[in-house]
């Protein structure tokens, strides 16, 4: 590893960290003993990382100089960051069970990256704003939906994405009499499919990146009941608006995001059916999503 570091340092900037805590230990590989104990302010050259540890070169003034050891991440701060995937590992420098990382330069075209393209799949639990109406027909005021989309990120800060969700649930047709719901033996299948475009800002960090955004779209809404004529069913689309906030947790090429979305689909309901009886007009609601994002 040390040889590799030497080779690469001649051509590219190396990742360096500054020790922030006095008496920070640099542990020998295997963590059986300390290679050195360094004061705050010591500059260390990073050659790799393993979980919460940086593999660093022991400074010249210490007996174990030129060898590598591990310093805890919290005890240092990164001065520059040029991580690249490991491409060629030296058995001598590779910690026994460390991740296959190597230090080195990032390719010039991706550093700093200005455009990233991602794909994502998402699962959500949506609770409709027309809570009484959906609870009457579906027995629940919401349900699970699934979808996916694509996202473009600019400078890792700005994102624009397009997504499609699909909610489909079977319930029963009803009558609402003086607020009482009477469920009938006629089944009813409701499909809600929002197609949205969102844009927002990411508070980009290496691992945890919160983000906020907003957008608009079209919501496709279908009600189909058993033995119904076409004119008794509903097949409509409405304009929607939404705002969202989330937290992305990156783990290399795959990231997981947890997101809350509040949407409004005004005047989509309330002209008939249970929604008219309950005076509910908004087809939007609140959804909690889990997204799995692919790409870098």
């Amino acid at each position: 590893m040390g040889m590799l570091a030497a080779c690469t340092s001649a051509a590219f900037a190396q990742t360096r960290v500054r020790v922030t805590h006095d008496q920070s230990s640099i542990w020998k590989p295997g963590f059986s003993s300390e290679a050195a104990v360094v004061p705050a302010g010591t500059i260390l050259t990073v050659v790799g990382k393993r979980d919460e540890w940086y593999e660093v070169v022991v400074p010249d003034e210490y007996p174990a100089a030129k060898t590598t050891g591990f310093v805890f991440k919290s005890n240092v701060e990164v001065l520059n960051q040029n991580w690249v995937p490991f491409t060629q590992a030296s058995p001598a420098t590779q910690p026994p069970s460390s991740e296959p990382y190597a230090f080195g330069p990032e390719p010039p075209a991706r550093n700093p990256r200005t455009v990233g393209v991602f794909a994502f799949g998402q699962a959500a639990y949506s609770r409709f704003a027309a809570r009484n109406s959906f609870e009457a027909v579906l027995d629940h005021s919401g349900g699970a939906s699934f979808g996916g989309g694509a996202e473009v990120r600019l400078w890792r800060k700005i994102f624009v994405n397009g997504a499609v969700d699909y909610f489909n649930k079977r319930g029963h047709r009803v009558f609402v009499i003086d607020g009482d719901v009477i469920r009938l033996g006629t089944t009813e299948t409701i499909t809600v499919m929002p197609v949205t475009v969102s844009a927002g800002w990411r508070f980009d960090h290496e691992r945890f990146s919160p983000y906020v955004g907003a957008g608009a779209g079209r919501t496709f809404y279908k009600e189909v009941s058993r033995a119904a004529d076409a004119d008794e069913n509903v097949d409509s689309r409405f304009t929607s608006y939404h705002a969202l906030a989330g937290l992305e947790i990156r783990n290399d090429i795959v990231a997981t995001a947890f997101e809350v979305v509040y949407s409004q689909v005004p005047n989509a309901l309330g002209h008939g059916g249970a929604s008219a009886a309950f005076g509910e007009t908004n087809l939007g609601g609140v959804a909690g999503r889990v997204k799995v994002i692919f790409g870098r």
Binding site: A130, I182, L184, Y221, A268, L269, H271, G273, A274
Partner: peptide, 9 residues
């Protein structure tokens, strides 16, 4: 009387 209503209609 048998068909009832859905959410929207």
């Amino acid at each position: 009387a048998l068909h009832g209503v859905g959410v929207a209609k």
